[in-house]
């Protein structure tokens, strides 16, 4: 029964969702809505599990005086401080509410816009430097395929943006046309082949699951 019930539930839920996808209204749609609502609830619970796991792992490393323990302490402090501020504002504790309905005056939004957003944007912008260094060191014309990739990459990069220095109009037009051809013909054909192949794979795996053949999700 330990195996049969989960398999039966999987088959049942799988078929219900598939049926609902090809029909509108009726019992399959109602069941599908119910299952999707359960799915959203499971995701929300997963957030709590994630927080629990984060706290457990970091507390363990703080108590073991791991070399990075101060950062882990900061992580936990920020996690609970932000959570606390958010909960306090939602419930209006300490008189913490948005003044005149202006959400900009909320403490949690201030932290988000003035601290979190710039930090995240900074981290992402550093990619430009790492990509430059990686391209300089690793992008080599070692083989015919690598050379083709390199030339195509360079043309797409140039065609994507205006020319930094004045070049003859014919050259600029040729680069733009080649870039458009590479993206809309070569790239599209490749993407479609990959998408169709991957979708057939997903379809086959999905069918194996709803037919009860694939049981790897039960660690079998």
């Amino acid at each position: 029964m330990k195996r049969e019930i989960p398999i039966l539930l999987t088959i049942l839920c799988g078929w219900m969702v598939i049926t609902a996808f090809f029909t509108t209204g009726g019992v399959p749609a109602a069941w599908n809505d119910e299952l999707l609502a359960w799915g959203v609830i499971f995701f929300s619970v997963a957030f709590l599990l994630g927080i629990g796991n984060l706290v457990r792992i970091n507390l363990k490393q703080i108590s073991a005086r791991h070399p990075d323990w101060p950062y882990k302490a900061i992580l936990l402090f920020v996690l609970f401080a932000y959570l606390g501020i958010g909960v306090a504002e939602i419930h209006g504790w300490f008189g913490w509410v948005a003044a005149d309905g202006n959400t900009e005056t909320l403490r949690r939004d201030w932290i988000y816009n003035r601290v979190f957003a710039p930090l995240q944007a900074t981290m992402f912008s550093l990619l430009a430097f790492y990509i430059a260094s990686a391209a300089f060191r690793a992008f080599r014309a070692r083989s015919t395929e690598a050379t083709l990739l390199l030339i195509a990459g360079a043309l797409v990069m140039m065609g994507q943006v205006p020319m930094p220095i004045p070049v003859p109009a014919a050259v600029e037009t040729w680069i733009a046309t080649t870039q458009a051809f590479l993206m809309s013909v070569v790239n599209t054909a490749g993407q479609k082949a990959v998408i169709i192949g991957a979708t057939l794979g997903v379809l086959a795996t999905g069918l194996r699951i709803v037919l009860g053949i694939e049981r790897s999700y039960l660690s079998e």
């Binding site: 990509i131 391209a135 300089f136 060191r137 992008f139 014309a141 360079a154 943006v161 205006p162 930094p164």
Partner: peptide, 23 residues
């Protein structure tokens, strides 16, 4: 910002060329 990006792309291509020449 597109002007910045144009130059950044140009430098990136130049670095790739220099990297290949050295290689």
């Amino acid at each position: 910002r597109m002007f910045v990006q144009s130059w950044a792309h140009g430098i990136l291509i130049l670095l790739i060329i220099v990297g290949n020449v050295l290689y």
